[in-house]
Nucleic acid binder design. Structure first.
Length: 719
DNA sequence: AACGGAATTC
DNA sequence: GAATTCCGTT
């Protein structure tokens, strides 16, 4: 029985369906991986291990074999599979855990957060193992409107939660809307893989009941569970032990089954099974997330994104609440204000967060004895177990900074002299085609990415028409602050054959974190929270600026991808708890300002330096209701200039390549079966939220963020 | 082992 | 679009 509830941790059923991947109907590798990860029977082949979202392929050949079987690619081997996995790096779905063989780490932000926009976090606590990804739950009675900011997830407090039911309407709509993959006209027969396949089989149950969510509108997903959430919370949320929907019944087995994997991260989602229940087919599919930043406004695929608004209408009040929460998120996580763009006319309420209240995240959840391992299983994973108690590293711990808050992104050298930049640039010759290159030396044709580096530059330069920019496909790529401004155009040029410029971070940074992630360093600074922290020492003051660049624009999108990135990073590294101190801070000062700004002016005299500086730059214009865009641009430009010196990052970001033909296939060579398994006992995350007093830098950041947010809203409003 | 470009396939 | 296939490099 694998009722979703029982099964334990896993993505929602729908997540495993092929359909859920918009891009391709066929099962995607990451889906498959997750599938394997959640099945006990494959634990000796692949299992969660280590940090949050981290898993190890214990038997590469076997995994490859399984994958090949699933895809009907008998020739599959680890080399090929790994290539596919590597492609995920750029997509930010995965990262390689350096130094550990066959070990990768999921970026659940992309996978989960984005995809489960409505999840709300239950409460605080933390029981999920670090390795465990956030748990999506569906059980909640209410829908949580908002999107995905991690903050919600992360937030320890329940305050953020929106009142239940608010979005039911939305949910409903979504459910029936074209949005859902299942229902979609394309009609995939989807259930092929997991969804219903199981119907007859083991899985069937899952899908069906899943729903706990079902009831009430239920399908709503609630949230992703943050690692810090406690077990109870989880269950509570989705009816875990208790059974969310209130189905106590089925669970009986829970006792034994539940535990399949100690580390297993995802509780099974209570989502309604796709089929019938389908009420809530999630509007977003996991795949979506893959696309960088799908949750952003500019993201394409409107169909999927609820946020696009075009499809739905919201109650202002709800929106406010949502925004409030979101604002906090933004604040806490240093997300880009652009997130607000989606709700142009709504005034963003001040976020407030009770300062204290830090849950004992660290709580530990002990390993539960594995209750139900499968007889078949060969070995259990001791290693996993260990992880339970060894906390890989509390997010914070990673960096000693007391202040480390996700929000700051120290890298911004803003003021620092250019030479400080930790990055180096490389000019690269245009890549040659394979054929062409045969004659050539091997040089380094590689890098496709260009310099756009930090995208911000590029973006800013282009006027607001960000839309024209390529965000859609991949914000991340856009992201980075651009060192080299012409990115977008440049790229095209490159294609033409111009030399490419590759920007690379100077790696000392990485050394610090080493194992964690595959070079995040190259990514947008914003993203590298952790690393930043490390750097921050060096570049201490600079750090905060980068938030400014966010611009707004709904239309324009020129933005800094930071938000996403931040998320990403968080994900990879495990989300850091929001600093307790911040909120107060935020509220009192910045918030204030921000609000003010909203009302009329973005900048206030006498405010933080950052603000002033900007003001200064903007000069006279500022006082008035200058077109926000303009202001932003200016500001942005400045920032960029400053940052340019150091930022660059994204050298490798993926630049969208050209697509070619498409094809569709339906096939099914599946062979795996699943059981819902799940383990429930995820190791506790030891997160601590302890944060010390906010630094000045933090303040600045927050202030800026705030400002930006405010401006954004203003902009949208009118002025 | 891991990376990533290029071409190809579905 | 998401791999798959090859393959040279690190």
């Amino acid at each position: 029985m694998k009722t979703p509830g029982d099964t334990g941790f896993a993505f929602p059923e729908w997540a495993y369906k092929p359909e859920s991947s918009p891009g391709s109907r066929q099962i995607q590798l990451w889906h498959f991986i997750l599938e394997l990860l959640r099945k006990e029977e494959y634990h000796d082949v692949i299992a969660w291990q280590g940090d949050y979202g981290e898993f190890v392929i214990k038997d590469p050949d076997e995994v490859a074999r399984l994958w090949g079987a699933r895809k009907c690619k008998p020739q599959m081997n680890y080399d090929k599979l790994s290539r596919a996995l590597r492609y995920y790096y750029n997509k930010r779905i995965l990262h390689k855990t350096k130094g550990k063989r066959f070990t990768y780490k999921f970026n659940f932000n992309k996978l989960v957060l984005v995809n489960y926009p409505f999840f709300d976090v239950g409460s605080t606590g933390s029981s999920v193992p670090q390795s465990a990804p956030p748990v999506p739950t569906g059980a909640g009675t209410h829908f949580r409107f908002p999107p995905s900011t991690p903050s919600e997830v992360l937030s320890p407090n329940e305050d953020l939660r929106s009142p239940g039911g608010m979005f039911s309407t939305v949910a409903r709509r979504m459910a029936r809307g074209s949005v859902s993959d299942c229902s979609d006209g394309t009609s995939v027969n989807s259930e092929i893989e997991e969804g219903n396949v199981g119907a007859g089989e083991e899985r069937g149950e899952r899908s069906v009941s899943g729903g706990g969510g079902g009831p009430g509108g239920g399908g709503s997903y609630r949230s992703i569970i943050h690692p810090r959430l406690s077990h109870e919370a989880l269950f509570r949320m989705y009816g875990g032990p208790g059974n969310p929907a209130g189905h106590p019944g089925p669970r009986g087995p829970a006792g034994h089954r539940i535990h399949q994997e100690p580390l297993s991260p995802f509780p099974v989602s209570p989502l309604p099974g796709p089929p019938g229940a389908g009420l809530l087919a999630p509007p977003l599919s996991p795949a979506l997330s893959m696309t960088p930043t799908s949750h952003l406004p500019y993201t394409p695929s409107p169909t999927l994104s609820p946020m696009l608004g075009s499809h739905f209408s919201f109650n202002p009040e709800d929106m406010k609440r949502y925004l409030q929460a979101h604002t906090q998120s933004v604040y806490n996580y240093g997300l880009s204000p652009r997130a607000f763009l989606q709700y142009p006319n709504i005034v963003i309420p001040q976020p407030h967060r009770p300062a204290a209240d830090k849950p004992g995240l660290a709580a530990e959840r002990a390993e539960r004895g594995g209750g139900g391992e499968r007889a078949g299983d060969r070995h259990h994973h001791p290693s996993l177990a260990h992880s339970a108690h060894h906390h890989p590293q509390p997010p914070h711990s990673a960096h000693s900074h007391p202040h480390s808050h996700p929000m700051h992104h120290p890298l911004h050298l803003g003021e620092e002299p250019p030479h400080m930049s930790p990055f180096k640039f490389k000019l690269q010759p245009p890549p040659l085609g394979r054929k062409q290159r045969d004659g050539q030396s091997q040089g380094k044709p590689r890098q496709s990415s260009l310099s756009s580096g930090s995208g911000s530059g590029s973006m800013s330069s282009t006027s607001g028409l960000g839309s024209s920019l390529s965000f859609g496909s991949d914000l991340s790529s856009a992201s980075g602050s651009g060192v080299i401004s012409a990115s977008s155009s440049t790229q095209s040029l490159n294609s033409a054959g111009l030399p490419k410029i590759k920007v690379e971070p100077i790696s000392d940074i990485e050394s610090e974190e080493e194992v964690e992630v595959t070079d995040i360093s190259d990514e947008d600074p914003d993203e590298r929270d952790n690393e930043f922290e490390l750097l921050s020492a060096r570049y201490s003051r600079v750090s905060n600026h980068h938030h400014n660049h966010h611009l707004s624009n709904g239309t324009a999108a020129a933005h800094h991808p930071s938000q996403d990135e931040d998320l990403d990073e968080d994900v990879f590294k495990a989300p850091a708890p929001p600093p307790p101190g911040l909120m107060p801070f935020f509220t009192s000062q910045h918030a204030h300002r921000g609000l003010t700004a909203l009302k009329s002016e973005p900048v206030e005299p006498g405010e933080s330096h950052a603000a002033q500086s900007q003001a200064a730059s903007t000069g006279a214009t500022q006082g008035k209701c200058i077109p926000l865009k303009l202001r932003f641009k200016r500001r942005w430009s400045e920032d960029q200039r400053m940052e340019a010196s150091q930022e660059e990052s994204d050298d490798k970001k993926v630049r969208p390549e050209e697509g070619r033909n498409k094809g569709r296939q339906t096939n099914g060579c599946v062979e795996m079966e699943e059981d819902g398994e799940d383990g429930d006992s995820p190791p506790p995350l030891a997160y601590e939220g302890s944060l010390s007093a906010p630094l000045a830098s933090h303040r600045r950041v927050s202030a800026e963020l705030h400002r930006a947010t405010a401006q954004l809203s203003l902009e949208n409003k009118d002025c």
